Amino acid sequence: MSIKVLVVDDSSFFRRRVSEIVSKDPDLEVIGTAVNGAEAVKMAAELKPNVITMDIEMPVMDGISAVREIMANTPVPILMFSSLTHDGAKATLDALEAGALDFLPKRFEDIATNKDEAIRLLQQRIKTIGRRRVYKPITPSVTKSAPTPVSRPVTTPVSPRAVSGSVVSPKPSIINRASGKKYRILLIGTSTGGPVALQKILTKFPQNYPHPILLIQHMPAAFTPAFASRLNALCQIEVKEAVSGDQLKAGHAYLAPGGMQMMLERAGTHGRLKIVAGSEDMNYKPSVDITFASVSKVLGKDTLAVILTGMGADGREGSRMLKSSGATIWAQDEASCIVYGMPQAVTAAGLSSQSIGLEQMADAILRESSNG
């Protein structure tokens, strides 16, 4: 059975272009097009597509408002098209928070080196998110406040539905007691579905979280400053986009800048960050593998590393190096992932000691970190 797609954009040229690309794949079928968000809301209810591709800036009703309405009434996987600008980044993050599953740059030349590669990528993204069941998003309301003891993490009941874009986990992961191991750093690597997953986890961390945190999210360079700023406003810990020379501090999270590679060097208690352009042949900038590998050489066994939702296998080889140095590796479980690619790669390789649902991940990390 083909995946039915609704294409939404106020530009007739872009609607036609996307529709042509979608229709070239025998597993995909365009069942309608809409010229604004209001039409999209109406057609989503009438046509019941498996996936919607959505522009952000449109007349009558913009894409973000349309996402909110669709996810509130007839939830469906939504892929946003965004401009690679600061305003585009903020709008895209708003759309993801409203319930959209993924995004791509609107200029296809920004996502691939040639036309055929761009076509394959768009088709793959649509097919990947089209296989997911989605539910109404849960909007967090967290602001910076007085610190709470890290040794007493709040236990949150498992919700019957996961965060936006995630599926219901029929059997929530069982979290073992803390191992008693002491750590000096927390690493989190992720891709598709990561912005919402990171927000859900990090907003539960207290201001006095005892370790520095390195975040590696596959994201364009124009997006990471806005994402770091958003996380910092929502979280009690401090979050910033990493720069070369940053000395790691407990209770601070450092987001790898888009288009660059983030590495850890020996310096002080926890180390110092080095941001480099990296090799042109690298598939991911930033790469989870590169950051994880550098940490394995500096802090090794004193590391807790977590792989969250994402396509591909980035993080597997870096996790292998960390594991060989005595580090602890965890992966998000399949049921709560938007895309069970990166966590599956780590789990299938025998590198992860636990598969944990997104709803339980923050409490599990806090419990494990309480001995550090």
Rank of each mutant, 00 (worst) to 15 (best):
P153C: 14
R131A: 15
E57Y: 02
V60E: 15
S151I: 03
M54H: 02
K24A: 15
T113R: 09
K144I: 05
R17I: 13
D87M: 05
F81H: 03
I64R: 03
V60P: 04
D55H: 07
T143D: 09
D25C: 12
K42V: 12
P59K: 06
V134K: 01
A146H: 00
F13W: 02
M54W: 00
G130K: 05
S23H: 02
V76L: 01
L84G: 06
A72H: 01
S19N: 05
P147D: 00
T85D: 08
R125F: 04
I138H: 01
R17Y: 14
I70Y: 01
F14L: 10
S82A: 10
M43P: 10
S141R: 10
K115P: 04
P140Q: 07
L101R: 06
R152I: 11
V158K: 08
A45Y: 01
V158F: 08
D27L: 13
I138M: 06
E109H: 07
P77N: 12
S145I: 00
T92Y: 14
K115F: 03
L28Q: 12
A40M: 09
M80F: 11
T155R: 11
G32E: 12
A98Y: 07
V41L: 11
S141E: 12
F108S: 04
K144H: 06
V158W: 00
R68K: 14
E20Q: 10
T143G: 13
S11A: 10
L47C: 07
M58N: 14
F13S: 06
D27V: 12
Q124D: 15
I129Q: 12
E57A: 08
P137Q: 01
A95K: 07
R120S: 11
K90W: 03
N36H: 15
V35M: 12
P140A: 09
V41A: 15
Q124S: 15
D94N: 09
A95I: 04
V134Y: 03
V41P: 09
